[in-house]
């Protein structure tokens, strides 16, 4: 029950995108369609689970003064490994997400969770936190991607809902990213503060 609670916490109460406003760069940069948004979310989640677990595992042996550099090295290791694995087995996706894959390193969500949660909790709980926060991030990115894809091209996950000619391209382009995220955030805020 406690683990489910941690996951729920990451998904809704501390949703990294809508509540904590963390990791904005990939949120805006990779959500041109639902599928790329979801892929980015899942990639980040994979790194987050690994980094959370390893930070939690070494939390007792790392001196406090050097913990941040150690966390950065751990995160960067997993990101680089992910980058190589994606280049090898998912080259098309790797090309689409491009520079945002190595930039997972500087995603504040990872260092934030390492410091705020994993360095104080056990390995299993940290993994659950990684799943929860990761899911919250993935859901937010997928939702944003789906909205932009729907408004811009009339498709969701590549399935046509209405003809593309009626879509407004602006939502797939850069300004649409900011505007749709702003509106989604307002909706989320409206329902969560009622």
């Amino acid at each position: 029950m406690k683990l489910l609670n941690i996951i729920y916490n990451g998904l809704v109460r501390e949703n990294p995108t809508f509540v904590l406003l963390l990791g904005m760069c990939p949120t805006l940069g990779t959500t041109g369609s639902a599928i790329t948004g979801m892929s980015m979310g899942l990639a980040t989640m994979a790194v987050l689970i690994c980094s959370n677990m390893s930070v939690s595992a070494v939390r007792r042996i790392v001196p406090a003064a050097v913990r941040i550099p150690v966390y950065i090295v751990l995160i960067a290791t997993f990101v680089s490994a992910l980058q190589m694995l994606m280049a090898a087995y998912l080259p098309a996706l790797n090309a689409t997400l491009g520079i945002f894959i190595p930039l997972i390193v500087v995603n504040c969500i990872l260092l934030g969770r390492a410091e705020a949660f994993a360095s104080r909790n056990g390995v299993i709980a940290s993994a659950a936190d990684g799943i929860g926060i990761g899911l919250g991030f993935t859901v937010a990115l997928t939702l944003l991607g789906a909205c932009r894809e729907f408004l811009g091209t009339g498709k969701v996950f590549g399935f046509e809902i209405y003809p593309e000619t009626y879509g407004s391209l602006i939502f797939v382009l850069a300004p649409g990213a900011f505007i749709v995220l702003g509106l989604l955030m307002a909706v989320f805020k409206h329902f969560s503060t009622r």
Binding site: L21, P175, F178, G182, L183, M185, V187, H190
Partner: peptide, 15 residues
């Protein structure tokens, strides 16, 4: 009220 803070800032950034 729900637009205050980050949401309206993001929309301005979009413009």
């Amino acid at each position: 009220r729900p637009m205050r803070g980050a949401p309206i800032a993001l929309i301005c950034a979009g413009l």
